[in-house]
Protein backbone atom coordinates (compact mmCIF):
# COMPACT_ATOMS: atom_id res chain seq x y z
CA UNK A 1 0.00 0.00 0.00
CA UNK A 2 0.99 3.58 -0.41
CA UNK A 3 -0.59 6.49 1.37
CA UNK A 4 0.37 10.12 1.36
CA UNK A 5 -0.98 12.63 3.81
CA UNK A 6 -0.71 16.35 3.23
CA UNK A 7 0.29 18.81 5.97
CA UNK A 8 -2.73 19.87 8.02
CA UNK A 9 -4.90 17.15 6.56
CA UNK A 10 -7.08 14.84 8.65
CA UNK A 11 -7.12 11.26 7.40
CA UNK A 12 -9.31 8.51 8.85
CA UNK A 13 -8.20 4.89 8.65
CA UNK A 14 -11.27 2.73 8.67
CA UNK A 15 -11.77 -0.99 8.55
CA UNK A 16 -12.75 -4.04 10.53
CA UNK A 17 -10.74 -5.49 13.40
CA UNK A 18 -7.61 -7.04 11.97
CA UNK A 19 -7.64 -4.95 8.84
CA UNK A 20 -4.29 -3.43 9.85
CA UNK A 21 -5.39 0.13 10.59
CA UNK A 22 -3.81 0.29 14.04
CA UNK A 23 -0.63 -1.34 12.76
CA UNK A 24 -0.45 1.27 10.01
CA UNK A 25 -1.04 4.06 12.54
CA UNK A 26 1.63 2.76 14.89
CA UNK A 27 4.16 2.43 12.12
CA UNK A 28 4.05 6.24 11.77
CA UNK A 29 5.74 6.75 15.15
CA UNK A 30 7.71 3.52 15.02
CA UNK A 31 5.69 1.84 17.74
CA UNK A 32 5.55 -0.86 15.06
CA UNK A 33 8.58 -1.35 12.86
CA UNK A 34 7.56 -2.10 9.27
CA UNK A 35 8.93 -5.42 7.98
CA UNK A 36 9.19 -3.80 4.57
CA UNK A 37 8.45 -0.41 3.08
CA UNK A 38 9.23 3.06 4.33
CA UNK A 39 7.55 5.76 6.35
CA UNK A 40 8.55 9.32 5.44
CA UNK A 41 7.79 12.26 7.70
CA UNK A 42 8.55 15.62 6.10
CA UNK A 43 10.39 13.68 3.45
CA UNK A 44 12.65 12.00 6.00
CA UNK A 45 12.74 8.22 6.40
CA UNK A 46 11.69 7.56 9.98
CA UNK A 47 14.18 4.71 10.23
CA UNK A 48 16.93 7.30 9.98
CA UNK A 49 15.47 9.13 12.97
CA UNK A 50 15.81 8.22 16.61
CA UNK A 51 12.53 6.57 17.60
CA UNK A 52 12.32 8.44 20.90
CA UNK A 53 12.89 11.81 19.24
CA UNK A 54 10.35 10.95 16.55
CA UNK A 55 7.68 9.99 19.07
CA UNK A 56 8.17 13.17 21.04
CA UNK A 57 7.39 15.13 17.87
CA UNK A 58 4.15 13.23 17.20
CA UNK A 59 1.05 13.45 19.37
CA UNK A 60 -0.73 10.26 20.37
CA UNK A 61 -4.23 9.62 21.72
CA UNK A 62 -5.14 6.03 22.59
CA UNK A 63 -8.68 4.75 23.00
CA UNK A 64 -8.65 4.57 26.79
CA UNK A 65 -6.92 7.91 27.26
CA UNK A 66 -3.83 6.23 28.63
CA UNK A 67 -3.35 8.84 31.35
CA UNK A 68 -0.87 8.01 34.12
CA UNK A 69 -3.14 7.25 37.07
CA UNK A 70 -0.48 8.38 39.55
CA UNK A 71 -0.07 11.83 38.03
CA UNK A 72 -2.41 14.79 38.30
CA UNK A 73 -3.86 16.13 35.06
CA UNK A 74 -1.37 18.95 34.62
CA UNK A 75 1.54 16.57 35.10
CA UNK A 76 -0.01 14.21 32.57
CA UNK A 77 -0.61 16.89 29.98
CA UNK A 78 2.84 18.41 30.39
CA UNK A 79 4.51 15.05 29.73
CA UNK A 80 5.87 15.71 26.24
CA UNK A 81 6.96 19.33 26.90
CA UNK A 82 8.87 17.96 29.89
CA UNK A 83 10.38 15.12 27.88
CA UNK A 84 11.49 17.70 25.33
CA UNK A 85 12.75 19.94 28.12
CA UNK A 86 10.61 22.82 26.86
CA UNK A 87 10.39 25.83 29.14
CA UNK A 88 6.99 26.54 30.68
CA UNK A 89 5.77 22.98 30.33
CA UNK A 90 2.95 23.67 32.75
CA UNK A 91 1.83 26.73 30.82
CA UNK A 92 1.83 24.72 27.61
CA UNK A 93 -0.21 22.06 29.41
CA UNK A 94 -2.77 24.60 30.57
CA UNK A 95 -3.08 26.08 27.10
CA UNK A 96 -3.62 22.61 25.67
CA UNK A 97 -6.23 21.85 28.31
CA UNK A 98 -8.13 24.98 27.28
CA UNK A 99 -7.89 23.95 23.62
CA UNK A 100 -9.32 20.56 24.51
CA UNK A 101 -12.17 22.15 26.39
CA UNK A 102 -11.02 21.67 30.00
CA UNK A 103 -10.63 24.63 32.35
CA UNK A 104 -7.17 24.31 33.92
CA UNK A 105 -8.37 26.06 37.06
CA UNK A 106 -10.85 23.27 37.63
CA UNK A 107 -9.03 20.25 36.28
CA UNK A 108 -5.27 20.73 36.32
CA UNK A 109 -4.74 19.49 39.86
CA UNK A 110 -7.19 16.61 39.72
CA UNK A 111 -6.34 12.93 39.50
CA UNK A 112 -7.38 11.16 36.29
CA UNK A 113 -9.78 8.94 38.21
CA UNK A 114 -11.66 12.05 39.33
CA UNK A 115 -12.61 12.86 35.72
CA UNK A 116 -15.40 11.43 33.60
CA UNK A 117 -14.55 9.31 30.58
CA UNK A 118 -15.09 12.23 28.21
CA UNK A 119 -13.00 14.59 30.34
CA UNK A 120 -10.22 12.03 30.50
CA UNK A 121 -10.25 11.76 26.73
CA UNK A 122 -10.09 15.54 26.43
CA UNK A 123 -7.10 15.50 28.77
CA UNK A 124 -5.53 12.83 26.59
CA UNK A 125 -6.05 15.01 23.51
CA UNK A 126 -4.58 17.97 25.41
CA UNK A 127 -1.56 15.83 26.25
CA UNK A 128 -1.10 14.95 22.58
CA UNK A 129 -1.20 18.63 21.59
CA UNK A 130 0.69 20.25 24.47
CA UNK A 131 4.08 20.30 22.73
CA UNK A 132 2.45 21.66 19.54
CA UNK A 133 3.35 18.69 17.33
CA UNK A 134 2.83 18.85 13.59
CA UNK A 135 1.26 15.39 13.58
CA UNK A 136 -1.24 13.70 15.91
CA UNK A 137 -2.12 10.01 15.81
CA UNK A 138 -5.42 8.93 17.34
CA UNK A 139 -6.34 5.30 17.89
CA UNK A 140 -10.12 4.99 18.24
CA UNK A 141 -10.09 8.14 20.37
CA UNK A 142 -13.84 8.23 20.98
CA UNK A 143 -14.52 4.50 20.78
CA UNK A 144 -15.04 3.89 24.46
CA UNK A 145 -17.43 6.77 25.09
CA UNK A 146 -21.21 6.88 25.21
CA UNK A 147 -23.03 8.32 22.19
CA UNK A 148 -23.72 11.79 23.59
CA UNK A 149 -20.20 12.31 24.92
CA UNK A 150 -18.81 10.99 21.66
CA UNK A 151 -20.74 13.51 19.61
CA UNK A 152 -19.69 16.35 21.96
CA UNK A 153 -16.07 15.37 21.62
CA UNK A 154 -16.31 15.15 17.84
CA UNK A 155 -17.67 18.68 17.71
CA UNK A 156 -14.92 19.95 20.00
CA UNK A 157 -12.38 18.14 17.89
CA UNK A 158 -13.62 19.80 14.72
CA UNK A 159 -13.51 23.21 16.40
CA UNK A 160 -10.03 22.46 17.64
CA UNK A 161 -8.87 21.54 14.16
CA UNK A 162 -10.15 24.83 12.83
CA UNK A 163 -7.74 26.54 15.24
CA UNK A 164 -4.82 24.16 14.85
CA UNK A 165 -3.83 22.99 11.41
CA UNK A 166 -2.33 19.80 12.78
CA UNK A 167 -1.92 16.78 10.51
CA UNK A 168 -4.13 14.11 12.03
CA UNK A 169 -4.52 10.38 11.46
CA UNK A 170 -7.54 8.82 13.17
CA UNK A 171 -8.16 5.11 13.39
CA UNK A 172 -11.85 4.32 13.69
CA UNK A 173 -14.31 1.63 12.80
CA UNK A 174 -17.17 4.11 12.80
CA UNK A 175 -17.87 5.29 9.26
CA UNK A 176 -20.04 8.18 10.44
CA UNK A 177 -17.17 9.45 12.56
CA UNK A 178 -14.77 9.16 9.65
CA UNK A 179 -17.12 11.07 7.35
CA UNK A 180 -17.74 13.77 9.94
CA UNK A 181 -14.11 14.38 10.90
CA UNK A 182 -11.82 13.44 8.04
CA UNK A 183 -10.70 15.26 4.93
CA UNK A 184 -9.97 11.91 3.35
CA UNK A 185 -10.80 8.34 4.29
CA UNK A 186 -8.70 5.23 3.70
CA UNK A 187 -10.70 2.00 3.78
CA UNK A 188 -8.49 -0.88 4.84
CA UNK A 189 -9.19 -4.55 4.36
CA UNK A 190 -6.80 -7.36 5.30
CA UNK A 191 -3.75 -5.10 5.16
CA UNK A 192 -4.60 -3.45 1.85
CA UNK A 193 -6.16 -0.12 1.00
CA UNK A 194 -9.48 -0.63 -0.77
CA UNK A 195 -10.09 3.02 -1.43
CA UNK A 196 -8.53 6.31 -0.35
CA UNK A 197 -10.58 9.37 -1.15
CA UNK A 198 -12.61 12.19 0.34
CA UNK A 199 -15.90 11.40 2.16
CA UNK A 200 -18.21 12.79 -0.53
CA UNK A 201 -16.63 10.73 -3.30
CA UNK A 202 -16.48 7.66 -1.10
CA UNK A 203 -20.21 7.82 -0.48
CA UNK A 204 -21.06 8.76 -4.06
CA UNK A 205 -18.94 6.18 -5.79
CA UNK A 206 -17.64 3.31 -3.68
CA UNK A 207 -14.54 1.94 -5.41
CA UNK A 208 -15.11 -1.68 -4.61
CA UNK A 209 -17.86 -4.09 -3.67
CA UNK A 210 -16.45 -4.21 -0.13
CA UNK A 211 -16.62 -0.43 0.29
CA UNK A 212 -20.19 -0.42 -0.99
CA UNK A 213 -21.17 -3.14 1.49
CA UNK A 214 -19.47 -1.25 4.30
CA UNK A 215 -21.35 1.94 3.43
CA UNK A 216 -24.65 0.13 3.19
CA UNK A 217 -24.16 -1.71 6.43
CA UNK A 218 -23.34 1.55 8.27
CA UNK A 219 -26.57 3.01 6.86
CA UNK A 220 -24.69 5.75 5.01
CA UNK A 221 -26.11 4.57 1.70
CA UNK A 222 -29.17 2.45 1.15
Amino acid sequence: MSIEIAPGECVALIGESGSGKTTLLRSFNRMVEPTSGRVLVDGEDTRALDAITLRRRIGYVPQDGGLMPHWRIRRNVSLVPRLRAMPDADALADAALRLAGLDPARFATRWPRELSGGQRQRASIARALAARPAIVLMDEPFGALDAITRSELRQSFRALRRELAVTTVIVTHDLHEAIELADRIAVLRAGRIEQFTDPARLVASPGTEYVATLLARAGVTS
Partner: peptide
Protein backbone atom coordinates in the same frame (compact mmCIF):
# COMPACT_ATOMS: atom_id res chain seq x y z
CA UNK B 1 1.16 -2.01 35.55
CA UNK B 2 -1.65 -0.16 33.73
CA UNK B 3 -1.00 -1.34 30.16
CA UNK B 4 -2.80 1.61 28.53
CA UNK B 5 -0.79 4.18 30.48
CA UNK B 6 2.49 2.40 29.78
CA UNK B 7 1.75 2.14 26.05
CA UNK B 8 0.77 5.80 25.85
CA UNK B 9 3.89 6.86 27.74
CA UNK B 10 6.03 4.87 25.34
CA UNK B 11 4.19 6.22 22.29
CA UNK B 12 4.77 9.77 23.53
CA UNK B 13 8.50 9.23 23.67
CA UNK B 14 9.48 7.98 27.12
CA UNK B 15 12.67 5.95 27.16
CA UNK B 16 12.66 2.53 28.81
CA UNK B 17 14.48 3.90 31.82
CA UNK B 18 12.01 6.78 32.22
CA UNK B 19 9.15 4.40 31.73
CA UNK B 20 10.40 2.11 34.47
CA UNK B 21 11.37 4.84 36.91
CA UNK B 22 8.47 7.24 36.41
CA UNK B 23 5.59 5.01 35.44
CA UNK B 24 5.95 1.30 35.95
CA UNK B 25 7.69 1.22 39.32
CA UNK B 26 5.44 3.84 40.91
CA UNK B 27 2.38 2.04 39.59
Amino acid sequence: ADAGAVDAARALGMTNVQLLRDVRLPL
